[in-house]
Structures are given as C-alpha cells and as structure tokens.
Nucleic acid binder design. Structure first.
Length: 837
DNA sequence: TTAGGGTTAG
C-alpha cells in the first residue's frame, strides 16, 4: 500500500499572539525540568485561548518525554501537535519516531517512518537503526542500514554507533568487521568517543578483549565513559588485574572516578581478591565523596565479602550499616556476601531480619541467594518454606530462582525432586542444565548426566562463549574427552577461542580428562592469562603429580605480575603435599599470609594437615591443628584421619574420628576410614562394632564407581558389576589378566576389605573392584595405541593401584586413572604418583 | 530544534 508522503511547508509563519512568548517560555522551562504533567494543561490552556505553540516547543516537549520514557504523555503531546494543524517538519517527525521506538511501540514508529517517504533523512534512518539495535532486533537494524546505504545515504558517527551495537550479537560479528572497515576509513573510531565505545563493546561482548583494547589504545580522545567501559568489560571478563591497572591509568590521566567507574573497579578488585587494593579504593571513595552512594556501597559490601575468603564479614557489615539508606540491592549484596563467603546460617538470619522489618521486599536475587544458602546447608526443608514466599510473590517464572531450587535439591541429594523442579522450569537455560547435570554427577548418576549433555547440544541456546565454557566444564567433570575435543574443534570455527574464559575452560577440560599435554598446549597458546588461567594450569600439573613443574609455574606466575589468590594457594599447597615437599609447603603457607595478604581458609589448613600427615609428621599435624586460630572443621579432621589410616596410627585416628562425629554425627566417611584403620591392624571386633553402628543409623558408604568413555558413550561399573552387555568378555579378560600378573609377582593385598572373611573371598572382593572392570573393558574395546582413561568417584584402593601397575606391563598399555583426589598415570609398571598418594 | 557510548545484586 502506498502511503502518502507528508509535505513540508515552505516556511513556518511565527505566531504573532502577544502571549506567545510567555507561554513558550513556560513550556520550555517545564520540558527542561522534566515536569511534563504541567505541560499538557498549559497546552490545553493555550489552545483554549487560541495561542498556537511552535514546532520547536513541541520538539523540546517530545525530547523531554523521551528522556523520561513516558509514552503516555508523549502521546498526549503528539495529539496536541496534530490538533495544532502545524505542518510537521523532519525534525519533529524524527522526534516522534524516537518517542515511539524508544518507548517500545515499534509498530507506530515504523508507521510514522513509512509515512515520511522521501522526507526521511539520515537522522530518521539512524533513529530507527539505533532503536532496533537496542530492542534486540539486530537483524532489522542491519537490514535497514543496508537499505539506507543502497538509497545513497552516507552514514555518520551516529549511524555507525547504532549499527555497531546491532553487530555486537555474536551472530552478526562478521558484519561488524565489515562495518569496522568503513569506520576505519572515516577515522570516526579514533576521533569520536561514542563510535570507539561501541566498537570496544562489540569486541568485548564477543570475548575479544585484545581487539577491544586495541581500539581503546588507538582512540585520540578518551572520556570517563570510555575508560569506564573498558574497565567494566575487563572486570566482567575475569581480567581484574587489567581493570585495576586501567583504573589507575584513568586517574593519572586526570579523570576523577564517578560512581560507575568506582563500582566497576571494586568489582574487579573483588574478582582479584585483593583486600589491600580494596581498602585503598574504599578510602579513595571516601575522599571523593562516593562512599555513601548506594551503588558504590553495594560494590563495597560485596568486595569485602569476596576478599576475606570466608573470614569475618565485619567490613561488609560496617559498610552496610554506614549506608544512609537501604534498598533491596544493599540487603541482597550483604546476604549474598554472607552466602559467598560461606556464612550460610548468618545469611538466613539476615534474611529473617529483612522479612521481619518488612519495609523492603526481597526480589529474585535475594531469593536466589537464600536458596543457595539452604542448598549449602542441605536445608531443603527451609528452602521449601522460602520457595513458598517466592510462589506468593509471583516470582516462580524467574528463571534463576527455579535454577536455585534445582541446585538446592541436587545438593541435598534429593535428585528426584531436583528433576521435578527442573522439568517444570518455565524456561530451561544452560544454568538449569548445569545444575541438574552437576547434581547427577555428584550423586554418581553419570548416565542421566550424559543424556542431558546430549540434550544441551541438541538445543538451540545459540552458541555463546558462555555455552562453550559450560559444556567444556560439563565434559571435564564427567571426563568425556571425546566431547571436549569436539567442542574444541567447534570453538576454532566460532571465533571464541581467544576468549580468556574459554581458554581457561579448555586448559581445565584437558587436564581433568587426564590429558595434561594438551592442557599445557592450550595454556601456552593463550594470548591473555589471568589468575584463573595460571591457577588452572598449576592445579592440573599438581593433580598429575608434576609438583616441580607446578611450583615452577607458580614462580613464573608471580614473576609475570599475576596475583595468586586463595585457590592458587590450594593448588600450590596440594602440589607440595602430593610429593611430600614439607618444608616448601610450610614456606608457601607463610608467604600466602605475609606476602599476599590471603587469610587462610579451612581448605588451606586442611592442605597443611594433609601435607604433614601424608609425610608421616602426625605429631606436627596435631600441633598444627591445635594452633589454628579458628575451630577446625570436619574436613581438617577427616584429612588427619585419612593420614592416620595411611600410617596406621590408631590413637590419633580415633581422636580425629571422635571430632568428626561430634560435628557431623552422620558422616559415613569417618566410620569407613576408622574401620579401615582397625581392619589394617586386624582389630575385627572394633570393625564389626562400627559396621553395626552404621547399620543402626542406616548410613551407607558411598558406592565406588568407575567409568570409561568410548566413542562418546560412558560405560559405568560398580564392584562386582555384571550388568554390562559385554560382561562375560570383561570377566574373561580379568581372569586372563589375573593369571598373567600373578606370574609377574603380583600378590593381592586385601587389607582394604572391611569384612572379616577368609582371604580367598577377600581376594575375590578386591578383584572385582570397579576400576579393574573398567580397565578390562578398556582393553577389549579401545585401540591399542591410545592410553586407557578411567575415572573413579572415590580414591583408588591400594591393591587396585598395585594391580594396575602390573596390568600396564602385561597389556603394554598406559592407564590414566583419575580418582577423587588426583591422577595416576600408570605405564610399564610405574605410576606417576610414585606410590605417594 | 531531531539520532550514539558507561553502573550495583544471580
């Protein structure tokens, strides 16, 4: 249908009415102050008295209604404009387009734009393109940009901003690169801050921080907004150190930080975990009068929470209490801080306080954090009560609340309920899938997990950098390297491979799948390394038993100026403990506190106990525990108990078990470790007592499970399993192996068998352990050239470890076993752990 | 007198 074009008047005759100037002045004042409700009555009064307003006034009023996104008032002004009978010029028509498109009435905007016909100018096109880009109609925006070019319009810096924004979506980045060619020719990217910002954002959103930085460095003019943008993107992409460095550069360049840049750099600082930098930023915020800003306040609360690593929340609390007013965000920031730093009970208390005060209603973020606290505490019952509140507030369709519910059930081991919550989710996203997959993995149901991973790949989430990172971590946790390699190949085509998060996920995937060589390669190929990259590599090397290389890499990390965090130190300490470098470990533990200001968490203390205990320094381990400034938790005692079991120290072992059971009376692992310890010493009476105690409490030892991937399928085995379709062949292979390795001198060590039964039966028990079934299956079903990769949910048993060394000799195959603790690379009768594990 | 860029909590 042809739409008649609006004809423009040759000249607008100015109003001659004596009161015109007075009213015009009043209207412009109203528009300036944004008090638009008065404008309509003034317009009414003017039309009543026969005083026409002019187009300039209407434009100002429209601009003001656009600024406040007030479509209702904008429409009233539009109606007045039509009644005035003034012939509309391009300027006021463009303002109308902007009004409707920015307020979400896209159809009306299009109608007005269509009616303009030949009178459309560059501003009309630009308005439409920018609005489409902002409303997630990237395809429309790009289509209009092309149409505009065909009509002969030359885009200016405003137009480029709009179209570049549209190209930020990963699907259209390739068009963005074509547009970049244009922009480079015009020089806009260097001279115009908005074009530069749009480009930086396009690259940053697609994970290419290097190109974003190149644009930033090439810009001739930089204002606070551009600096802030670059700082924010670094912070969001896990490059906290760079964000902080840039913030310093910004201040040196003479820009005083505002609430935006301050909030972002605080987030960066939280990510890096540097309390020292955080405190400096806090005092800067106080000096320049930003500390009382709500936004900055929230960032301070969460910065302190993240930087103390589970230590006291005093600083966060003080900032919160010093805030002049509280809103739902500040409450949520504090509650989330408590949850993130492991103070789940306090988080629940605070939530109760918030509800009791009743002035501020929790929102979806608050609920999500509280559900997480319930998950951590395995308090599914309280969680259900919280969820009742969610239902009442009508927030059930908020995706991540549903996800938190799934996580909560999954963490409490209630997988049926988790699955139900997952199935009824209003919208399933990757986080939902990750929550349920993770639940299945933790509860040893790899088939269900694997099936869901297939579903994820078949779904149309659209591959984003985040998708890849999640899929890689799913592949890593279950150990399906085939899937991980497929993802790696897809990544190379997708253009995400330069994303630091992705590269980190690749390093971790390869190392968790037992392929340390490819992990090292992925690490070496990285363009940008952050704390997580270094930490992942150090962890990988440590788990694979390359403690020397792990420590060497740690020194390179520090030399390269990257800042180790609490997790880095867990890797470093565990590297020392895996090879028994006791004094080196002690040194690192001191340096962590003294040189890097990292307050040790329970995990660090447990690492130290592990280091001392494994090396047989049990007395020192006990002394170390007594000297701890915080009350040792069950993890610390469990670590000691495990060391006592290794070294057969019954007295300390009993003490450790008492402490564990005092804190966690239903912990099956304490019973199992203790009964293993008694079994080692042949104290069968005590073993029987423990077992009957467990039976009374109906506690079950976590079942040992091993699995192996062949051609994308997971084959899972439990001890004595006969359910596999090739079970007969598997047992035949096992028998064959048994004969051969006994000839080579293998003698079965049955001390890990709990039962007081005769030796022959014990031998049968260990011989059918899940890891051996998996190895036998690997031998009959995989190529002789590749290593056999086995995964086990618990620690490998001593006898299986010995048997596998013999098996690697007779079969001439390398066996790579990942147990719950580390990797064992077994070749020609030797294991990379050096039998120290 | 019309068109463009940045912020906190999951």
């Amino acid at each position: 249908m042809a739409v008649p074009a609006i004809s423009l008047p040759a000249k607008i005759t100015p109003s001659k009415h004596p009161q015109f100037e007075t009213f015009k002045h009043r209207l412009l004042r109203i528009a300036d102050a944004g008090r638009l409700s008065g404008a309509i009555s003034t317009l009414d009064l003017m039309s009543h008295r026969g005083i026409p307003a002019d187009l300039l006034t209407y434009s100002s009023l429209l601009k003001s209604s656009i600024r406040s996104r007030d479509l209702h008032l904008g429409k009233l002004i539009h109606r007045h404009l039509l009644h005035s009978g003034l012939p509309l010029d391009a300027i006021v028509t463009n303002s109308l387009i902007a009004l409707y498109s920015k307020c979400g009435d896209w159809d009306t905007a299009c109608l007005i734009f269509d009616q303009m016909g030949a009178n459309r100018n560059l501003v009309s096109w630009t308005t439409m393109i920018s609005s489409a880009a902002r409303s997630n109609m990237e395809r429309t925006a790009i289509g209009m940009f092309c149409e505009m070019l065909e009509l002969g319009f030359i885009p200016n810096e405003y137009t480029f901003c709009g179209v570049i924004q549209a190209c930020s979506s990963s699907e259209f980045v390739w068009i963005g690169l074509v547009v970049l060619g244009f922009v480079i020719k015009t020089g806009f990217w260097r001279e115009d801050v908005a074009v530069g910002s749009a480009l930086i954002d396009m690259f940053a959103k697609n994970g290419d921080l290097c190109s974003a930085r190149k644009v930033f460095d090439g810009m001739l003019v930089r204002n606070l907004v551009v600096w802030t943008l670059m700082i924010t993107r670094y912070a969001q992409r896990g490059c906290g150190e760079k964000a902080i460095a840039l913030f310093v550069g910004m201040c040196l360049d003479g820009h005083e930080p505002d609430r935006f840049s301050m909030s972002s750099v605080l987030a960066a600082c939280a990510e890096v975990g540097s309390l020292q930098v955080g405190k400096q930023l806090h005092s800067l915020a106080i000096r320049i009068g930003l500390a009382l800003d709500v936004c900055v306040g929230c960032s301070l609360v969460s910065m302190y929470a993240k930087c103390v690593f589970g230590g006291p929340m005093d600083d966060s609390r003080r900032v919160f209490e010093g805030m002049p007013e509280h809103n739902v965000m500040s409450w949520t920031a504090l509650i989330t801080g408590y949850v993130q730093s492991g103070h789940d009970e306090e988080a629940l208390e605070l939530f109760g306080e918030m509800i009791r005060e009743g002035e501020i209603q929790p929102n979806h973020f608050t609920y999500s954090s509280i559900l997480k606290a319930c998950a951590n505490l395995s308090e599914a019952n309280i969680g259900e009560q919280v969820y009742a509140h969610v239902v009442k507030s009508g927030l059930t369709i908020v995706n991540f609340i549903g996800n938190s519910l799934v996580t909560m059930y999954a963490k409490s081991g209630r997988m049926d309920e988790a699955r139900k919550a997952f199935e009824v989710l209003y919208e399933k996203n990757l986080v939902s899938y990750n929550a349920i997959v993770d639940g299945y993995l933790k509860n040893s149901n790899s088939e269900q997990a694997f099936e869901l991973i297939h579903q994820i790949q078949g779904s149309d989430f659209g591959a984003s950098a985040f998708t890849f990172a999640s899929l890689l971590s799913a592949a890593a946790s279950i150990g399906i390297m085939g899937k991980g390699q497929q993802l790696h190949a897809q990544l190379l085509k997708s253009g995400f491979e330069s994303d630091t998060c992705i590269s980190n996920a690749l390093v971790s995937m390869y190392s968790k799948c037992g392929n340390i060589e490819d992990a090292v390669q992925a690490f070496q190929e990285m363009e940008d390394r952050n704390t997580i990259s270094w930490t992942s590599m150090i962890t990988g090397l440590a788990k694979h038993g390359h403690a020397d290389k792990a420590l060497e890499l740690f020194h390179s990390m520090v030399a390269a100026g990257a800042k180790p965090n609490d997790i880095t130190y867990i890797a470093v300490l565990s590297a020392c403990s895996h090879v028994g470098l006791v004094s080196e470990g002690r040194k690192h533990f001191q340096s962590m506190k003294n040189d890097h200001g990292i307050i040790p968490r329970m995990e660090h203390y447990a690492c130290m106990v592990d280091l001392l205990g494994r090396a047989g320094h049990l007395e020192e381990a006990i002394d170390f525990i007594s000297s701890m400034p915080v009350k040792p938790d069950a993890l610390v005692w469990r670590t000691l108990l495990s060391a006592c079991r290794t070294h057969g120290h019954t007295e300390f072992g009993e003490r450790a078990a008492r402490e564990i059971l005092y804190q966690e009376p239903d912990d099956p692992s304490a019973y199992v470790l203790l009964s293993n310890l008694y079994a080692m010493g042949g104290q069968w009476g005590k073993v029987a007592m423990i077992r009957s105690g467990m039976k009374e409490k109906s506690l079950n030892k976590e079942a040992g499970l091993s699995w192996i991937e062949t051609e994308g399928n997971i084959h899972k085995f439990h001890a004595g399993d006969t359910s596999h379709r090739r079970s007969e062949e598997i047992y035949e292979k096992l028998d064959e192996l048994a004969t051969e390795i006994k000839r080579l001198g293998y003698v079965s060590d049955t001390s890990s068998v709990l039962h007081d039964v005769d030796d022959e039966l014990k031998e049968k028990y260990v011989w059918q352990h899940s890891e051996r079934l998996a190895v036998a299956f690997g031998l009959i079903s995989t190529s002789a050239l590749k290593p056999i990769r086995i995964f086990k949910n618990l620690r490998v048993c001593g006898d299986c470890h010995t048997a596998m060394k013999f098996m690697s000799m007779v079969a001439g195959r390398e066996i790579i076993l990942r147990d719950s603790n580390r990797f064992h690379r077994i070749k020609d009768g030797n294991c990379s752990c050096g039998d120290y594990w």
